[in-house]
C-alpha cells in the first residue's frame, strides 16, 4: 500500500488540498491531515506542491 508522507518542510499553504478531487486533505494552520483510506493515489497533490513537501511512501 502507498501512503502519502508529509515532509517536515510543508508550509501549510493548502495548494494540495485545492486539487485533491476527493477532498481528502485538511490543511490546518500548522499541520496537514490526510484521509489515507480513500486516497486513489493519483499523485496530483504531490505534483502541485510548490516545495515538494509531499511524497509517496511504499
Amino acid at each position: 500500500m502507498i501512503i502519502m508522507k508529509v515532509n517536515e518542510w510543508c508550509m501549510y499553504c493548502g495548494e494540495c488540498a485545492g486539487v485533491c478531487s476527493r477532498s481528502l486533505i485538511e490543511v490546518r494552520e500548522n499541520s496537514l491531515k490526510f484521509d489515507k483510506k480513500k486516497c486513489k493515489e493519483c499523485t496530483i497533490c504531490i505534483q502541485v506542491c510548490p516545495v515538494q513537501a509531499l511524497a509517496k511512501e511504499e
Partner: peptide
C-alpha cells in the same frame, strides 16, 4: 484556494493542476 466547504455541499470547486499556478 484550499477551499473544501463548497464541495461538502456538492459544488464543484476542485481545481485541475492546469488551472492552479504553483
Amino acid at each position: 484556494p484550499e477551499s473544501r466547504m463548497g464541495r461538502f455541499l456538492g459544488l464543484k470547486t476542485t481545481l485541475k493542476p492546469k488551472n492552479m499556478e504553483s
